[in-house]
């Protein structure tokens, strides 16, 4: 039963990715600029432009080019960067790793932190701690990530203290995680932006569940409070929160663009910004597709968590 639901979600995800690929491909076609001219620059003669166009299939009709590109995606061939002449996969390989590292680090901190803060807040409902958590999380949720980022930079790197690096310096041949201090601020920004949403949602669902008849019943059975929260309440409160977590993680895949730009972090976001300014269509397409894939996978995981948290879905129609 679960398998069938998961397979269905998986098929839907694939359809969505196809739709996204269509939109990405034809939208980037509309970008101004001629790739061949961009590559050749001053040396562009009509013959050389024609030669490049033929070499890159740019003279073929859009549909043919779409399917060639799509076929390439399946074989890991993301095309050739117009700006550098390197294969896109080679260009992005390291950057995908760096971005995913940033996101995973932020997720590993913000998800448990959000859930714990939400539960704590719900258990202390109406008390000072609860009001403080709710108030601060509301303020943070209202601030865009670049404001949070700039504030952190001003506080920890430049104006107030100078204890953390404000930008990422990565000598060639090293990895981002070789310099943990440089990671602190980018991760902190993502954590500060994502955690409030999770905490607020967790608090809301937890309060609802704590007010339910079965939680009261558990207490009237003499179940210790810790077990009431963890065994009786949490499994029901976590389902809707999983959806919010998924949206937040998916948001991170896009929000990382701004954060990377702010800290000069050598990830996907930087690559996307560079590619757009160089009219590097192939890279734009590839990065957009990668972000879309992350989006879809995260949402798929959230759906699966939702299914597992709901015994009615889990057991299906067998009643």
């Amino acid at each position: 039963m679960i398998a069938r639901l998961v397979v269905r979600r998986l098929l839907i995800s694939i359809v969505i990715l196809f739709a996204v690929s269509l939109i990405v491909f034809f939208a980037t076609l509309l970008l101004p600029g001629d790739p061949a001219r961009a590559i050749l620059g001053q040396q562009a003669t009509p013959e050389r432009i024609a030669a490049i166009n033929a070499q890159m299939n740019l003279d073929a009709p859009p549909w043919t080019r779409y399917f060639l590109w799509l076929g390439g995606l399946f074989t890991g061939d993301l095309g050739t960067s117009v700006a550098t002449g390197q294969p896109v996969s080679e260009l992005l390989g390291e950057r995908v790793g760096a971005s995913v590292f940033l996101m995973v680090a932020a997720a590993l901190i913000s998800v448990p932190a959000g859930i714990l803060l939400g539960i704590y807040s719900a258990l202390r409902r109406g008390k000072a701690v609860d009001s403080a958590i709710t108030g601060i999380s509301l303020v943070l949720a209202a601030l865009p990530e670049f404001v949070v980022g700039i504030a952190l930079v001003a506080f920890f790197s430049t104006t107030v203290f100078t204890i953390l690096p404000a930008v990422t310096m990565q000598p060639p041949g090293t990895q981002v995680w070789d310099f943990p201090l440089q990671l602190v601020l980018p991760v902190a920004v993502l954590v500060l932006v994502v955690t409030p949403y999770i905490a607020r949602m967790m608090r809301a669902t937890m309060i609802e569940v704590l007010d339910s008849g079965y939680v009261e019943m558990a207490r009237l059975k003499g179940v210790p409070e810790r077990r009431v929260v963890l065994r009786h309440a949490l499994p029901h409160a976590i389902g809707p929160v999983a959806q919010v977590i998924a949206i937040q993680l998916a948001w991170m895949a896009g929000g990382v663009v701004v954060v990377e730009f702010l800290f000069r972090y050598p990830g996907l976001g930087q690559a996307l910004i560079d590619a757009v300014s160089y009219r590097d269509v192939q890279v734009v397409q590839a990065v957009t597709m990668i972000i879309a894939v992350i989006y879809v996978i995260v949402n798929l995981l959230a759906d699966i968590v939702g299914i597992l948290a709901n015994p009615k879905l889990r057991t299906g129609g067998e009643s």
Partner: peptide, 28 residues
């Protein structure tokens, strides 16, 4: 106190609620 109450609840003094659909934990 809470600990002493918990020891009695569900053991020496028990409760049958109005709506079993709401008071049985749907996930257990």
């Amino acid at each position: 106190d809470d600990a002493a109450l918990r020891r009695l609840r569900g053991a020496r003094v028990t409760y049958i609620p109005q709506d079993p659909a709401l008071s049985l934990n749907p996930g257990i």
